[in-house]
Design a protein around this nucleic acid. Sequence first.
DNA 1: TATTGTTATACTCTATAACTATA
DNA 2: TATAGTTATAGAGTATAACAATA
Lengths: 149, 149
Amino acid sequence: MATTRATTPRTDPLTTEVVDLIGTIVARYHDEYEEVATRHALTGAQARVLGLLSLEATPMRRIAQQLKCEPSNVTGIVDRLEARGLVERRPDPADRRVKLAAATEGGRATARRLRESLRFAREPLAELSPEERKVLRDLLKRMLGEPAA
Amino acid sequence: MATTRATTPRTDPLTTEVVDLIGTIVARYHDEYEEVATRHALTGAQARVLGLLSLEATPMRRIAQQLKCEPSNVTGIVDRLEARGLVERRPDPADRRVKLAAATEGGRATARRLRESLRFAREPLAELSPEERKVLRDLLKRMLGEPAA
DNA sequence: TATTGTTATACTCTATAACTATA
DNA sequence: TATAGTTATAGAGTATAACAATA
């Protein structure tokens, strides 16, 4: 079945330790993201969509793809952001079926403040020297299947 | 406040790149967790609770603390797991107010299958040699504020 | 015919507040 | 009186199915 199993058994202590560390990072990252969103009176999903739209106006359909959820859900999320003046719906000149959701100026400002509040993985990285950050970057890249730059 | 700020400005390209990589890992980890849970007909929250209870019987209150949610929510989650025979409630001999939620044998089997399906951060780590995994472990530990072993 | 966005529906997770049974 | 668990309630996210407008 797994012919390379012997090289790196999935249960060796070192691998388990790294897996646990990554689990800790994932948990901490998510907790902080939710907390920052709540502090701005947004849910996690709303904060994610606002973050997307602060970069560029996006068709409803594509928002759903980025969120990995059904398009029908995006309607409600954008509704709530629109009700607060953070987002607006605009027609797509090229296709009248499409609605482009776009962040308003206020929405972009909120998104910016949100981004700046997300200290995690910034402050902690200050513990590492630039050389160590490079090593970490290359290891993470290889873990994710990218060529090591 | 942050006297070392000048050394590593939060916006330097290398730090940003590492932050983005960690964001990618977090997203992938969560997507896979949800997908595996769904494949076992469980929600993410149900899978997390079942994972906890497969290790040891736990008072409702403590489950809420681990999930970082209100105790009232745990009632429903455990209800649904119990209705499927994966979990059961038992009295705590030491304190009759307390109910211990415990995984049944079937629940432990499901939890085991679930754990085995979670390949992420296992398979990807196979890309790294044992030495590289050690370096990664120590960098992650320091990032998380632990002494570097 | 196919696609985009929406509505309608039902389920789950979430927080808040009030309740009960113990301590 | 304080604590553990529950119930009731309301808001939000989710998937599914059916619909109108447009392609």
